[in-house]
Amino acid sequence: MDGTIGILSQVAFWGLYSGCIYILLATGLNLIFGVMKIVNFAHGEFLMLGTYITFFLFVISGFNPYVLLVGSIPILIIVGVIVERLCFRPILGTGKLNEIFISLGLIYIFQNLVALIWTDEWRSMRSPFADILINLGPLQLPLDYLIIITVTAMILVSLYLFLQKTALGRAIRAASQNRRGAMLMGVNVERVDMLTFGIGAGLAGAAGTLWAVSGQVFNPYMGSIPAIKGFAIIILGGLGSIPGAIIGGLAIGMVENFTAFTLGGSWKDAVSFILLIVVLVIRPTGLFGEAEE
């Protein structure tokens, strides 16, 4: 125990860890928003599906759960593509709030489908590295958290490379900057929509795997609150901006944990929204948001 510094840096570390989950959610939401200009409130259900898929693949195969990212990400990409095709494409360009309303329907469908198949009991799993501790200066940390943070960074770097270096990535960026322009340049925006939605869902799936591996419990209803916070993050960080999502995710992770540390755990959820409202009162377009469209 070397006093306050040790404690504060430990709280900061937990903030960093929970920030990782938020960053993956918010990046996906922002990618989708950038291209399609819609918000998927059912994004947390992809997180929830990710935890369940990881859990059952783990039970069946016994593989290292980090390897199971190879399973959860592609499965969620496929789920995302299907959801985009069936639910979001038909309402693109209709009423302003329709995508929020349709997300409500999707939330009910996903949560209860999972509950129907796998019951709504809480579940948890244990990582094979659970007992390994690493010494880092004043902190003694389980290896899992370091892996989780590294994996998140790797996913973000690969996403960056994908968006910068590949033709598909460039098409996504083009559609995100100017949808009509991209269409005129011969980009098949409908395909880009589907792909982007899939990638967004895949990122949520990865977050689901990391959630389960860290030993946190999950049930079919666990996704809604993290996703709503993910949405608060992209408003804070600026709609459509991926660096904004990363900074915002970290910020919310930190703020939440320091609030739990000072004000107590019951304010943990409320504080993100207080922050959001304060920011929006000062800047109605969000911290890094562009001015009116």
Binding site: V11, W14, S18, M222, A260, F261, G264, G265, S266, K268
Partner: peptide, 13 residues
């Protein structure tokens, strides 16, 4: 120390 019902991250508390 109170926590929200359904909480799964108690690390900071």
């Amino acid at each position: 120390e109170p926590f929200k019902m359904g909480e799964s991250d108690f690390r900071t508390v």
